[in-house]
Design a binder for these strands. Sequence first.
DNA 1: CATCAACCCTGAGAGC
DNA 2: TGCTCTCAGGGTTGAT
Length: 282
Amino acid sequence: MPELPEVETIARRLRNGSDDFAPVPGNVIQDVKVFWKKIVATPDVPTFKKALAGKEIKDVLRRGKFLHFPLDQGHLIAHLRMSGDMLMEKRLDEHGSALKKKDHDQAIFDFKSPWRLVLNSVRKFSRVYYVTDPQAVFGNLGPEPLGHDFSADKLYKMLHEHSRQIKPLLMDQSFVAGLGNIYADEILYEARIHPLRKSDTITQQEAQALYNAMQKILRKAIEKLGTSLDWMYRGGEYQNHFLVHQREGEPCPDCSGKVQKIVVGQRSTYFCPNCQKAPKEP
DNA sequence: CATCAACCCTGAGAGC
DNA sequence: TGCTCTCAGGGTTGAT
């Protein structure tokens, strides 16, 4: 499910805690339960459990769509993929007995405190990693779109290193880290670039517009605490601000045209054919 | 290198 | 109501 704004929202929530739960940093893992073995990407499940027992979580960070938990020794990393969520909850009821796991809880990290960190994933696509060097997981990721080392100039150069359809390229995590199907549509619309344009036809001016759109859309989505889609409601409300995504047939916010839906790179793609001019046929 | 199909999974919603 | 079909915010793998 989650793209950069949703993962950022989850990371902040876990890092800071709330009225309802304690912050994750400072907690020491007592025991790890795994209910679906394939959730553990690396190492194998017994090693994973053994490695995490007794470790203290020092912080909660985000890199691309990954949640990153640096430990006092090693790193716990999680990717939620399509339908995952991570949350902090009480592990004991008022009588001191363990609370039952909920439907689709795939892994539970019990802390020595009264809390536990839960990975819930309806479609079981989520993955967790225990590594000594986070680069083992992050090594192939492209730059952070909101990072200080990213710029319109750099984006322009990167775009011209490929000759690919712009939308799938934006969603390629080794190109830029964190964009998925929703925000790629929204960003391309905001920049008025057709999703099928080849990356090496993007002008410097368009690259600037694309960069600006990334900043604007992602920052606003983070401000709105991300997107909540139907049954995956988590508090975010950016879905109420979609410009084109999931708005097939509805009026474009900027012209009298209607939003159109096509398939690009095997993903549903929404755009305004009037504002986002189609590339010329070769 | 770029593109695409199949696959990993479950559940919601549409259509019948 | 119940069945079947399609679709879903992601990513990997193997073929073309």
